[in-house]
Nucleic acid binder design. Structure first.
Length: 485
RNA sequence: GGCGCUAUCGUCUAAGGGUUUAGGACACCGCCCUCUCAAGGCGGUAAUACGGGUUCGAAUCCCGUUAGCGCUACCA
């Protein structure tokens, strides 16, 4: 087709939160659409009523918005080919399922789940492929009519031809072929009137004029069913691209238990959307040269399905942390301020007040020492509350019997300061050390311990500057009182 | 079990038969910087799963084995 507009879709089922694997699928679809000036569709696949989760759709849209993947057509926003929620398209699926029945390409099945289960166990015991035995295909037209009339629950199954090999081309997998003998007479319309994925996705992709189907590898084995359906309807098959899976560190399919899998989790920890997107993009794709840090705009320019790999990729949190830090490097304190505030508002410090100016200084001091913003609370709680305890290893190393006396002298010097800045603290400390005939280090470490309770963190004078004279003196006095050798 | 997909450093990956003593990044280790911890700079360890072919030549092509994963639902 000449200059056909590219249309792709991200079609999640609303069963909870957006999974990082889902984000990757959404991202690749988005990049491909934007790069080709195409359309990015969001379609909600909620055809399993038993798995419906309240608020999941809103959450999904919200999360997509947060990472910056805006869709062109979809729920709320609408579009020319809606509705974009499958539960609102039931009549459409019913119509097409009926059409296949009328044309002899599908048939009613009245088998109970008990019978199906029994049939399967028997076949499995014999070591055979547990395929539907086509019991209901043998029903006569009058039998079918009678059963329908008596309101027996039924499903519609597709009739899969025998002895055919289904071949197809996948942009990523290349040529794949599967024998039809291994394909079950798949249920298309369930007894509750909802379609299964297979019917719904084929009908919708065609009706929504989707040109490229980019989705996870778990769908690869069911492609033949879809190809058959396209043939039955006499529709053109979209271009297929099946993405490799995302894996846990132990190479099993990425799941809860082995870390966070919801995009929400990363947002809550204070990862930058730029960092997450950049990292996710590199799981299965690379630009072909040695660049690694990309913005969304750069990804749109560089991305190509041809450079997507075939093998599964482990979600490696260390690499995410590093990439996120690279994006932190590129931001100003002011830009990052809202993220820290958001995290504080959900922390145990939520009722305390900190000025923007104060928080920006904290960000400045900590930005090289964190990988995500919750790290500021984890690594430097002393910016939000006085130390409750003091690191014992650091005490052993840097707190001498004479330390309280030295710090007493230091407090005297600090007290004389008027609205001190970083350099003033530094000069005062130097004077004290000199007067006591000590190396500065002896005092510096003790003061760090006194004000922060820890043995690591930003430069001491930065900490003092941020905390301010009054607080510093108070904390040193507290430490002298509390630290016992 | 059957079918399918996949297989380069621990991890993400480059190398599309000869330019490869297999390159980069994260992680790890060492050194430098330094008031601590980071960041940064410099350096190092580390891989073509195995076995057969094809070819003058294979990480690259073919076959087999093995392993991992996926699918095998009135779930998506």
């Amino acid at each position: 087709m000449i200059s056909e507009q590219i249309r792709v879709r991200f079609a999640p089922s609303p069963t909870g939160f957006l999974h990082v694997g889902g984000l990757r699928t959404a991202l690749y679809n988005y990049l491909f659409a934007r790069q080709n000036h195409g359309v990015f569709i969001l379609r909600i696949e909620d055809t399993d009523r038993s798995r419906y989760v309240e608020g999941a759709v809103e959450n999904l849209i919200n999360t997509l918005q947060w990472v910056g993947l805006d869709y062109d057509e979809g729920p709320i926003k609408g579009g020319a080919y809606g509705p974009y929620v499958q539960s609102e398209r039931l009549e459409i699926y019913r119509k097409y399922a009926k059409q296949l029945v009328d044309e002899g390409k599908a048939y009613y099945c009245f088998c109970t789940s008990d019978r199906l289960e029994q049939m399967r166990t028997e076949l499995e015991q014999k070591g055979e492929f547990a395929k539907y035995d086509r019991f209901c295909l043998k029903l006569s037209p009058s039998e079918i009519e009678q059963k329908l009339k008596s309101n027996l629950p039924y499903v519609i199954r597709m009739k899969v031809p025998d002895n055919t090999t289904i071949k197809f081309y996948d942009l990523i997998r290349k040529d794949v072929e599967i024998s039809s003998e291994l394909i079950d007479d798949q249920v298309l319309l369930k007894s509750d009137g909802y379609p299964t994925y297979h019917l719904a996705n084929v009908v919708d992709d065609h009706l929504m004029k989707v040109t490229h189907v980019i989705r996870g590898e778990e769908w690869l084995p069911s492609v033949p069913k879809h190809i058959l359906l396209y043939q039955y309807f006499n529709w053109e098959v979209p271009v297929l691209a099946h993405l490799p899976l995302l894996l846990n560190p132990d190479k099993s399919k990425l799941s809860k238990r082995q870390g966070d899998v919801a995009v929400e989790d990363y947002r809550a920890k204070g990862y930058l959307r730029e960092g997450l997107i950049n990292f996710i993009a590199l799981l299965g794709w690379n630009p072909g040269d040695e660049r690694e840090i990309f913005t969304l705009e750069e990804l749109i320019k560089e991305f190509s399905l041809e450079r997507v790999g075939k093998s599964g990729a482990v979600f490696n949190i260390d690499k995410l942390n590093w990439i996120n830090l690279q994006h932190i490097h590129r931001k100003t304190e002011k830009e990052m301020l809202p993220i820290l505030k958001e995290i504080l508002s959900r922390s145990k410090y939520k009722d305390l007040f900190f000025s923007d100016d104060y928080l920006e200084k904290v960000i400045h001091a900590m930005r090289e020492r964190i990988n995500y913003f919750a790290g500021i609370l984890e690594k430097s709680p002393y910016f939000f509350e006085p130390p409750k305890e003091y690191d014992s290893v650091y005490i052993a190393k840097h707190w001498k019997a004479e330390t309280p006396d030295w710090l007493g002298k230091l407090i005297e010097e600090f007290s004389k300061l008027n609205n001190p800045k970083k350099e003033d603290f530094e000069n005062a400390l130097n004077r004290t050390a000199e007067a006591l005939g000590l190396g500065r280090g002896k005092i510096i470490h003790a003061v760090r311990l006194a004000v922060s309770g820890m043995g690591e963190g930003p430069g001491l004078y930065d900490i003092l500057d941020i905390l301010g004279k009054e607080e510093v003196i108070k904390r040193i006095q507290q430490a002298i009182k509390n630290i016992k050798l």
